[in-house]
């Protein structure tokens, strides 16, 4: 029996156009989804439960609408969920402390999360939570085997595969390729609406003071300059291709 915790986040679907309002990204007309890397984490958690028995608790910190990301996790097979509700946006340091506090109240053998969120792209929260809880972590996981207390994992290290051994309890973060997240079935989507979802706030966790410290402020937010119009080549076909290859290779450096 394994006590499994997944930490996750709701993000904007990156297919959507990004619009900036002052120092914030406009979230009004966009689709909010479960962060794709966290989706791998949820899938892996549910697979662990199916293999070893136990239960999966999904935890997030965010605005009330983040509930729908938790419901997605519940539809995929998590058993209960905790939403630490907060309208303010906080930095990674505070978020990690909040999640760690919420996790501490539960028993856990393993904590899974995504290796980064596609919106903020910081890759911080997983290792920070591990440090707060004083447990080891393995990041950018592409394979996970657990046998008793023993953990054997493969992690992606800039293209190389590292085979890492460790012990429970542990925190791991998911990389693309870890698994193929399941599509929730229609009945499970409906059942997920009835699974337990607990809402707590920062005061409940006794962290009001800890998170009120301002460590950084956003002073500017802008979009990269618009793509200039594409270049259509003309003339002899082979020369066109040569020109293209040279540009891709030497100037764009994408090959």
């Amino acid at each position: 029996m394994m006590n499994i915790v997944v930490i996750l986040k709701q993000t904007m679907d990156l297919e959507e156009q990004v619009t900036i309002e002052g120092l914030k990204i406009d979230n009004e007309n966009v689709e909010l989804i479960l962060n794709p890397y966290d989706e791998y984490a949820v899938e892996e958690a549910v697979k662990l439960k199916e293999e070893h028995g136990g239960g999966v608790t999904a935890i997030t910190f965010g605005k009330p609408e983040a509930e729908s990301a938790l419901r997605t996790a519940l539809a995929m097979g998590a058993d209960k969920a905790i939403l630490v509700e907060q309208e303010r946006e906080l930095d990674e340091s505070s978020i990690a402390k909040i999640l760690a506090a919420a996790i501490r109240d539960n028993e856990f053998d393993i904590i899974l999360g995504g290796n980064m969120s596609v919106d903020n792209g910081a890759s911080q929260v997983g290792p920070r939570v591990a440090e707060e809880l004083d447990i080891p972590h393995i990041s950018t996981l592409t394979k996970l085997d657990i046998d008793g207390e023993n953990v054997r994992a493969e992690r992606d290290s800039e293209g190389d595969v590292e085979i890492v051994e460790s012990m429970l309890p542990i925190l791991v973060t998911a990389q693309q390729g870890l698994n193929e997240p399941r599509y929730p079935s229609l009945p499970n989507i409906m059942k997920a609406k009835k699974k337990p979802l607990e809402k707590v706030d920062i005061e409940d966790l006794g962290l009001e003071e800890v998170v009120s410290k301002v460590r950084s402020t956003v002073v500017d937010l802008y979009q990269p300059p618009k793509k200039k119009k594409g270049r259509i080549f003309a003339g002899d076909l082979r020369q066109q291709v040569q020109k293209l290859v040279r540009l891709l290779h030497e100037e764009e450096k994408v090959v």
Partner: peptide, 12 residues
């Protein structure tokens, strides 16, 4: 689901 109650393995 009302119209196709036996297709309970349908996925979104």
């Amino acid at each position: 689901s009302n119209a196709f109650p036996t297709l309970d393995n349908a996925k979104l």
